[in-house]
């Protein structure tokens, strides 16, 4: 063994990323490639909705009741062409889906971020401190995990409705929705992070930091957090799909976003009224979009979990 370390190969960051095991595993997984392409296309379409949507479905002046129930790929009586058909009010379904996805994704992402921040923080504290605090936090998480997430979201949503004055509800509904979904999903993060933290806490690099008097908050953020983010990313990806579905469920039940800015769930609720009268497209296209979105994100999460698990390599 000599004192000379391996010669430093000047590699740019990009080369290093492209050469990493994660990218290698990605390139060899057709499912991950297809899923990521679909997810990226859907997310881009949602972000760019105001520019690429053929109509603005929320501008009442452009709505024409004569367009109502136009079949997909046909021109209405009023002379407008609808690729995916129109709903009962004459709104273009393609445009409503694009705008609806925006709302769904916004709520899903924000709720997941909120759940992640809360869950990771509580998990770190519980895992590092242990003892009574750990017991209290984890029992709350256990109680929460023993209820279906949707029930908890409904409960939180209902309580918030009661607390917020009626004239404020329209503006705050999105925030309440995000909080409700986020609060119903933090426990998964907390559990995983707590376990990983308990493992890392035992390691000598943490002892070394304690010996030199690094405050616990810095040990948690600078030492332990970077070593537990792997599983967190996986849960966050799968959690995103769950949050989107949860938002859709709430909106379907009629407690989600208001009909003035419908999400995919709201569209599905509207569509199901017409399913048996032959206007299948009003339900089918939003539902299909939701499935595609949730499935692609979920498959990405599955791939990430396997790729980060060295035992499956």
């Amino acid at each position: 063994m000599t004192d000379v370390t391996t010669p430093a190969k000047p590699q740019s960051r990009l080369v290093r990323v492209l050469d990493s095991d994660l990218v290698f595993s990605y390139r060899r997984s057709p499912i991950a490639i297809v899923a990521s392409i679909i997810a990226v296309v859907l997310i881009l379409a949602a972000i760019l909705a105001p520019w690429i949507a053929p109509y603005n479905p929320f501008n009442p002046r452009t709505l024409n009741l004569m367009d109502g129930f136009t079949k997909p790929m046909s021109t209405s009586f009023a002379g407008n062409y609808f690729l995916l058909g129109a709903d009962h009010q004459g709104r273009d379904l393609l445009s409503t889906i694009l705008y609806g996805m925006r709302v769904s994704l916004f709520v899903g992402l924000s709720a997941t971020l909120f759940a992640m921040t809360l869950g990771v923080s509580l998990g770190l504290i519980a895992g590092y401190r242990g003892g009574l605090l750990d017991a209290v936090i984890m029992r709350i998480a256990d109680i929460q995990l023993s209820f279906p997430a949707i029930l908890i979201a409904l409960l939180i949503f209902g309580v918030a409705r009661g607390l917020i004055p009626a004239n404020q509800q329209e503006n705050t509904v999105l925030v309440v929705l995000i909080l409700a979904i986020g609060l119903s999903n933090w426990a998964q993060f907390a559990r995983t992070v707590r376990g990983a933290t308990m493992v890392e806490r035992q390691k000598d690099y943490v002892s070394a930091a304690r010996i030199m008097g690094v405050p616990p908050i810095f040990i948690l953020i600078k030492h332990i957090l970077p070593n537990v983010v792997g599983p967190v990313l996986v849960i966050a990806t799968i959690g995103l799909a769950l949050a989107i579905i949860e938002e859709a469920t709430l909106s379907f039940l009629g407690v989600g976003v208001p009909p003035t800015q419908p999400s995919l769930g709201t569209l599905i609720r509207i569509g199901q009224q017409f399913l048996f009268s032959g206007e299948w497209w009003i339900l089918a296209f939003p539902a299909f979009t939701l499935i595609l979105l949730a499935l692609s994100v979920n498959l990405l999460g599955d791939w990430l979990r396997d790729a980060l698990n060295p035992r499956l390599r």
């Binding site: 390691k203 000598d204 690099y205 002892s207 070394a208 930091a209 010996i211 030199m212 008097g213 690094v214 030492h223 970077p226 070593n227």
Partner: peptide, 30 residues
């Protein structure tokens, strides 16, 4: 005044930190 060297050199260095930061940690912490 007191420092420690551990048994397992794989567990005693934080894998997410650069060597320079690892060595500088006591200087910064103190």
């Amino acid at each position: 005044s007191i420092q420690m060297i551990f048994q397992d050199p794989y567990a005693s260095l934080n894998p997410r930190w650069r060597v320079g930061d690892i060595i500088a940690e006591p200087i910064r912490a103190l």
